[in-house]
Design a binder for these strands. Structure first.
Length: 912
DNA sequence: ACCGCCGGGTGCC
DNA sequence: ACCGCCGGGTGCC
């Protein structure tokens, strides 16, 4: 996948491409400490086993650090067509078969055109390093190319620390000089940088997601017209669906290059990569339709298939409009749904040509259309739709529902053991539906060859391939991803509601599928997009946005068309209900607070807040818990610890308390919620993979990112999140609290006003949910509970029960803040009670979105309970500032800022 | 290449 | 002169 099409005379023979398989990943995110997961197979296997799937893992081994760079020259420019501009990156490709020199290293530009060769003596060095996998070599051309014979190139060497010596030795022994030291990239002298950088990374992820969501908000209307579907589609399209159809037709038909291409001096100049090509770049025909769920991606796609056949003409039309019909019934094999008489053999294509009447601006002239398709297989006519098994029947239903009954659309369900594998048969269909499993099964039997012949799906020349739930292919290592890349088609579409799931790495696979040049080649994606963005480079992000923008249409349920919402969602309002503590509670709270303040102010004065972070967190959690219910605190620990071992034990107990409550603590490395938590001997909590990576990259010198204490992999302590055992204890001597009372009175009032309104009661503390069960039962509320400890199956049951409108179904759901993840639908509820504020306001929003979504019929009212004069009030203030902070951190150059803000946050919380 | 290198022509000052 | 010097031909790996 990384080989460029060779242009030089030996370009195609025996290339040993520099991208040693899988080593082209973000070798370091910042400061030399790559935060990607292990290159250590044991760790990788372990974490994989723990998580059940390897999906979240970064499979690409980390290639380590920058050893240094040296200046060399590229020769033989005049023999090749590849052009390079000032500052542009080039790739180095080994040519072991070169008849003049087996050490030959070819230089290619971003578009894979050969530029020249590395000068002989230098090539001998590079060949040695590259062939032995000692380092990865990247080239940048530092100056404009003044003469036509040779040019300078700066080569940088990246590799594993253990190979540094060997590389340096190789270089010096051949009397080249390796420049080391700060070459504009960052060194990791300071752990502060580490934290700050990861903070920036985390902020970037947030910004990225926001940017992604907002990308099309403003641009849509002036750029996209509307287009009616052909008459064969019997369901009228909504305005935003007409826009999508228009956009999709433009994407398929338009010959114009994306806007980041300019014609400059007879060359095609790419404004993203600052590179030029002589040959007209291959254009993407298709894109990513990333509308939110429920906006009608399926219908729009069906409309596209029917409306935009060759040359912008419709595929077929209702019988009443003419056209001969050849009705040979083909039942979908193995179809669980009805064998529908609509699925018949088509009438001959050429006879159903009618110019599509375009309502919008997207008329395609025959000339444009013809020229754009000059190299296409004119016989290709079938659209292949690939989807997860679970939505196969949905496609059949929707085709049935949206296509006029008198249109003889020829749909074949390629599924089941009896499926017809005849490629001529498949090619002659209008639509072939299949699943990712079928596709990858056919493909993976010896790489696209099954039973000695090619996989039928990979043999057919498709007009169009549509990937439904396209985010499924985001892991490029998966068989189904590889299978999908190998399909032979003119147009490519990805339908997805969740285009970015974890990070931008997910996007690469989508870009690669679309063949968005040159980023379908991993090296360029990494060098131009991924590394810059993960290092916090704004230009990188802008490039990414531009890239995404040119191939994606995304509307959310809150997007607007012509000033009107796409879909109208009921109103949503937030009110904060202040809770007054009773006299007794106030006294107890103040006692705890004073004690905590004393401790923390001492840490602040000493500048040791981060060293004692565990302690600080524990104090804060206790105060937060106290605001909900005094019994949440659980057992109090002894306050004096005699030996270091006891101290350690005490800290572990405290951290167990912090994490065991389900509160949302961040890992200081990745700044996401802690996954697979481990505690260091200095009592700081990280995700195991994150801290393991830090330790691995810093080896013996590894220090805790928070307190800079020595850390060792062998000393990391895991704590299993133990089950609630004190539950019974909790319930036996049950007492109420001000917050419990506040909730109950709201719920009772609500029930007396309208007993059909359902509510979500949300807390970060699962123990609090347990406490709440008592008064709910007492008052005769029917409720269900959903928390993180429940099995997937049980969750589904609970959700179904809650969503059901059967008489006697529950009015209330007790929900732990982070249970269930995104995507669960609780639209039966229209009231949300947030019992305690979260550190991260986005988590609260996400939770509310579970009921404020498509399908919600009522206005949604959110009540946040905040104890007056407590940490909670301060948390709310910090929540408000947090969004600003993200913006600031995004642009900040000061690495210390993150630490400062952390301490400031704690000081603000404790009013110090 | 406004170079380096090669090899033929040439040869006091 | 088995040299130096000159100037034309030539040029990636």
């Amino acid at each position: 996948m990384c080989a460029h099409p060779g242009v030089g005379p030996w370009g195609n023979t025996g290339l040993l491409v520099n991208c040693v398989s899988g080593t082209m990943q973000s070798r370091r995110w910042f400061g030399g400490a790559g935060f990607s997961f292990a290159d250590d197979p044991v760790t990788e296997t372990l974490s994989q086993a723990i998580r059940g799937t390897g999906e979240e893992l970064d499979r690409e081994p980390d290639t380590g650090v920058l050893f240094g760079s040296l200046r060399g020259s590229v020769v033989g420019l005049r023999y090749y067509t590849g052009v390079v501009n000032k500052g542009e990156m080039v790739s180095l490709v080994r040519q072991p078969q070169n008849p003049y020199d087996r050490n030959a290293v070819m230089v290619a530009n971003v578009y894979g055109s050969q530029v020249g060769h590395i000068k002989r003596e230098l090539a001998a060095l590079l060949a040695n390093i590259m062939d032995n996998n000692l380092a990865r070599v990247e080239g940048v051309v530092p100056f404009g190319v003044k003469n036509q014979f040779t040019m300078s190139v700066v080569l940088s060497f990246w590799g594993k620390e253990e190979n540094r010596d060997a590389v340096v030795r190789q270089i010096t022994s051949r009397s080249f000089k390796l420049q080391t030291g700060p070459t504009g990239t960052h060194t990791h002298a300071d752990t502060g940088t580490l934290i700050a950088s990861s903070w920036v990374i985390s902020c970037l992820t947030v910004c990225l997601k926001n940017a992604f969501d907002n990308l099309f908000e403003n641009l849509m209307e002036d750029k996209i017209g509307e287009r009616e579907a052909v008459e064969a589609v019997c369901t009228p399209l909504l305005p935003h669906q007409k826009q999508a159809l228009s956009w999709m037709c433009v994407c398929e038909n338009n010959v114009a290059l994306p806007h980041f291409w300019e014609v400059k001096g007879g060359l095609f100049y790419n404004t993203l990569t600052h590179s030029s090509v002589r040959e007209r770049p291959q254009r993407v025909r298709g894109g990513i339709l990333a509308d939110d769920m429920g906006l009608g991606k399926t219908l729009t796609t069906i409309a596209l298939i029917l409306s935009n056949f060759h040359h912008g003409k419709p595929l077929c039309e209702p019988v009443s409009l003419g056209g001969r019909v050849n009705s040979i019934l083909i039942s979908p094999v193995n179809s669980k749904s009805k064998p529908n008489s609509n699925y018949t053999h088509p009438h001959p294509f050429d006879e159903c040509i009618i110019w599509c009447v375009s309502q919008g601006k997207s008329v395609v002239s025959p000339v444009e259309a013809a020229s754009s398709q000059s190299t296409d297989d004119p016989a290709a006519r079938a659209t292949l739709i690939i989807c997860p098994l679970s939505v196969l029947s949905n496609w059949l239903d929707q085709l049935d529902q949206h296509v006029r009954a008198d249109v003889k659309l020829n749909v074949y369900l390629y599924y089941g053991s009896e499926r017809n594998r005849d490629t001529h048969f498949l090619s002659s269909q209008h639509v072939v539906l299949t699943t990712y499993n079928v596709l990858s099964a056919e493909y993976s039997v010896s790489g696209g060859w099954v039973c000695g012949s090619a996989s039928p799906l990979h043999t057919v020349s498709w007009l169009r391939v549509v990937l439904d739930e396209g985010h499924i292919i985001r892991n490029p290592n998966a068989q189904q991803s590889k299978a999908v890349l190998k399909l032979n088609t003119q147009r490519r579409w990805i339908l997805t509601g969740t285009p970015i799931q974890n990070n931008l790495r997910d996007l690469w696979m989508l870009v690669a599928f679309l063949r968005l040049k040159p980023f379908d080649v991993r090296e360029w994606w990494n060098r131009v997009i991924q590394r810059p963005v993960t290092q916090g480079d704004k230009t990188g992000l802008q490039n990414l946005q531009a890239l995404v923008k040119c191939v994606t249409l995304r509307r959310t349920k809150t997007s607007r068309v012509c000033g009107r919402p796409l879909v109208s969602l009921p109103e949503r309002s937030v009110r904060i209900e202040e809770v007054e503590l009773t006299q007794k509670e106030r006294e107890e709270y103040e006692l705890a607070r004073t004690e905590g303040r004393t401790t923390i102010s001492r840490y602040v004065a000493e500048g040791t807040v981060l060293k004692n972070y565990a302690d600080v967190l524990a104090i804060l959690v206790r105060l937060r818990q106290f605001c909900c219910h005094p019994d949440l605190l659980g057992k109090t620990t002894t306050h004096t610890a005699a030996t270091p071992a006891e101290l350690r034990e005490r800290l572990i107990v405290k951290l167990r308390l912090v994490l065991g409550t389900g509160s949302d603590e961040e890992c200081a490395v990745c700044l996401n919620s802690v996954r697979l938590p481990v505690i260091t001997h200095c009592a700081h909590v990280y995700c195991r993979p994150c801290i393991a990576q830090v330790i691995r990259s810093e080896q013996e010198q590894a220090r805790c990112p928070l307190c800079r204490g020595q850390i060792k992999a062998s000393e990391l302590v895991e704590f299993p999140l133990e089950e609630e055992e004190e539950g019974s204890n909790l319930l036996e001597n049950w007492r109420s609290s001000s917050k419990v009372e506040a909730l109950m009175s709201s719920l009772l009032r609500l029930r007396s006003e309208d007993d059909s309104i359902r509510s979500l009661v949300v807390s970060q503390f699962t123990r609090f949910l347990t406490i709440l069960e008592i008064p709910l039962r007492e008052e005769g509320f029917k409720f269900v509970r959903l928390d993180g400890t429940m099995s997937q199956k049980r969750r589904a049951q609970v959700i179904q029960e809650f969503q059901s409108d059967a008489p006697g179904s529950p009015l209330i759901m007790l929900l732990s803040l982070k249970a269930g993840g995104v995507g669960i639908n609780l639209s039966a509820a229209s009231r949300v009670f947030l019992m305690d504020p979260a550190w991260n306001p986005a988590v609260e929003d996400q939770c509310v979105d579970r009921c404020h979504r498509l399908g919600q019929k009522r206005d949604v009212v959110i009540t946040k309970f905040i104890v007056k004069g407590s940490v909670e009030e301060n948390m709310v203030k910090i929540q408000r500032q947090k969004q600003d902070l993200v913006e600031k951190a995004f642009g900040t150059k000061n690495p210390g800022e993150r630490n400062t803000s952390r301490v400031d946050e704690i000081r603000a919380l404790m009013e110090l």
